[in-house]
Structure formats: C-alpha cells, structure tokens
C-alpha cells in the first residue's frame, strides 16, 4: 500500500508536466509553429550552455525559498498566499541593512540576510496572529498584506532610503551575494551564492519538519487541529509559529533578489510574481523539501528558457506563456491525474 502511494506521489507531478508539455505542443502545432523547434529553443535557453544554466539556477533560487515558504505553511494546514508580500519586505530589509552599515563581510552578509528573514517573519506573524486569536482567515489577510507590502516598500525606496529616486543604490560589497567565481564559470550569468543557501534552506525545512518535536507538532496541527489540541498541543501557538517561519523563508527569498540577483531594490510597479509562482512550485513539489527544489528548478528553467523561444524558434511570446500556464494548470489539476491513475489501476486489476 505505502509503496504504491509513494509511486503516485511521484507520478502525479511528472505526468502533470508531461501533459502540460503535450498540450503546449498541440497548441504550437495548431497555430502553425514547430513544437520540436520550440522545445529545443526552450531547452537551449535554459540549459543550452553554461551561461543559461547559470541564469536558470539564479531564477530557481528565489523560487526555492518561495516554494518552501508556501509548503511549510501548508504542512500546518495554512495557505500562505502572502509569500509575495513577505518576499518584498524581506528584499527591502536586507537591502536596507546592506546599505546602512559598513561591517566586515562575515557579519554584514548574514546580518542582511537575517534582516530579510526577520522582516518576512514579521509580515507573516500578522496573519498568523489574526488567525490564531481572532480566526480571521489567513488567505484574506495575506492577500491584503501583499498589497500593503508592495506600496510600503515602494514608499520606503522613494522617500526614506533614497531621495525621490526609483531605485536604491547598490548594496555594499560586504553585503553582496554576488560571486565572481560563479560568474566566471557560467560566462557572466547573474548566478550568485544564494543558490547554496537555497539548498541549505531546503535541508533545514526537511530537518525541522521531519526530525524535530516542533515539526511534529506543526504537522499534527496540519492533520487535525482538534486532535492536536486534545493531545495537549497549543494550536494557536503552532499556527503563529508556522506563519512566522514561512514568512522568514519568503523573506530570505527577497534577500536573494536584493543581495544577489539585482544588488539593490527598485520601485515595483506590480508584483514580481515569484511569491505566486511559489504556490505552484510547492504544489508541484508535493509540499516536500526535495520536491520544492526540483519544482523550482523546473520553473526556473521554464521562465528563463521561454525568453529564448521567440528569437530562436519564432514561437510568439504569448504562446510561450500559454504553454507555461498549461503546465501549471495540469499540476493544479493533479486530482484529475490521481483519478485517472486510479481508473488505470482498476482496469489492470480486472
């Protein structure tokens, strides 16, 4: 029983992606484009040479954090849609610390990242607290908090950190995640040291959830609140804690952008989308640490590779977006695939 269940867990996301690619191919075919050329361009644009591999890994880095954040909350039965906002405040906080202090690197960089984590955690604490104390649904609060974060960070960039400019200065070298070594082996891609942190964070989440009492309690609350309460666990405390840790992951995702990819922060006219994609990443990854890392890699590859599709294969941008959306659609409709698999097995049994 448990073996076949594991098999389904793995099969569903893989089949989803294959369905998505297949549907994308059909659409390309119908609209008069060559799917083989399109996917070849996608592949080349994502892993074609060391530069693109570097860009894919760079794009994957914040996805890992966003995915972990969503997955972590989900394991406690919470739907954290506020990753986008937590990421923005984390981005701002780490850039701010990166600009405001002059410290040796071994203090400055961790401090900037911790500031990002703390800001994200604070942003996650609010919906967690409201949920625990007043039973306000976290989906509503986190969505609102996203907009609050967007406009608050824009205000801080324009009127507090800079004097009316639309971007901050680059962070000091001592707070930067950028790595000449990684750039040199990837032919000047913007890959930065954050990728190591992403891997560490994934291991950390696995360890926290699976190997500690804290993680056990969090998961228990996720499975059944009443049973956990009856067993003597504080449901409220675990809800808040889960949102705080989830927010911290998201906040570090923002640090990756601020200290690594961009090296500064600028006025965002809209959401970066990384937080929302994080939901899909977590879903595709089955809310497990390793799954999130793999799903983030896939999303990074799709995002970066798709940029290359129009110029190399002539597939229009709009189609590329449809193909990507289809893959997400099939991932989200995993229930359908589970059902299909079930039918398949029944027939086999007959």
């Amino acid at each position: 029983m448990s073996v076949s269940k594991n098999w389904t867990v793995l099969a569903v996301p893989v089949i989803s992606v294959l369905f998505g690619l297949l549907a994308g191919a059909i659409i390309m075919l119908v609209s008069g484009n060559d799917p083989a050329a399109g996917y070849a361009a996608l592949w080349n644009g994502a892993f074609g040479d060391s530069f693109y591999t570097g860009e894919t890994l760079r794009q994957m880095t914040p996805y890992v954090f966003a995915g972990l954040a969503v997955a972590f909350a989900f394991r406690t039965g919470l739907f954290n849609i506020g990753v986008e906002g937590q990421l923005l405040v984390g981005w701002l906080a780490s850039v701010w610390v990166g600009l405001a202090f002059e410290l040796p690197k071994f203090i400055h960089l961790p401090l900037a990242i911790l500031a990002g984590a703390a800001a994200g955690a604070a942003w996650g604490f609010i919906p967690g607290f409201l949920k625990a104390r007043l039973r306000v649904h976290e989906v509503i609060v986190t969505i609102m908090m996203n907009y609050t974060a967007l406009h608050v960070t824009n205000y801080f960039i324009r009127d507090v950190i800079s004097d009316g400019a639309d971007a901050t200065d680059p962070v000091h070298e001592t707070a930067s995640l950028q790595s000449e070594f990684l750039q040199s082996i990837t032919d000047f891609s913007s890959l930065h040291n954050g990728i190591y942190l992403a891997v560490v964070a994934a291991i950390l989440m696995w360890f926290m959830l699976e190997k500690t009492t804290l993680g056990y309690e969090l998961r228990a609350v996720g499975y059944n609140q009443h049973a956990s309460e009856y067993a003597g666990m504080s449901v409220n405390r675990n809800i808040i804690l889960s949102m705080v840790i989830s927010g911290a992951f998201a906040g570090i995702g923002g640090s990756m952008q601020g200290l690594g990819t961009f090296g500064n922060m600028f006025i965002n006219s809209g959401f970066s989308g990384i937080g929302f994609d994080g939901i899909a990443v977590a879903l595709l990854g089955g809310n497990t640490a390793i799954g999130v890392v793999l799903a983030a890699l896939l999303f990074g590859a799709l995002k970066v590779g798709s940029l290359n599709m129009p110029i190399e294969s002539g597939v229009p941008n709009e189609l590329v977006e449809i193909v990507i959306a289809l893959i997400i659609f099939f991932v989200a409709s995993s229930y359908m695939i589970t059902w299909l698999l079930g039918r398949f097995k029944k027939k086999e049994a007959k």
């Binding site: 690197k105 071994f106 400055h108 960089l109 961790p110 990242i113 911790l114 984590a117 930067s176 995640l177 790595s179 000449e180 070594f181 990684l182 040199s184 040291n193 190591y196 942190l197 560490v200 964070a201 950390l204 570090i252």
Partner: peptide, 15 residues
C-alpha cells in the same frame, strides 16, 4: 542559517 551565511561570505572573492 548564520553559519551558512558566514561560510558563504568567506568564499566571496574569486579569481
């Protein structure tokens, strides 16, 4: 997390 950051900080400068 802190330790990771410290280690990473150290491998900043490359050739």
């Amino acid at each position: 997390v802190l330790a990771a950051g410290t280690i990473l900080g150290a491998c900043g400068g490359g050739e």
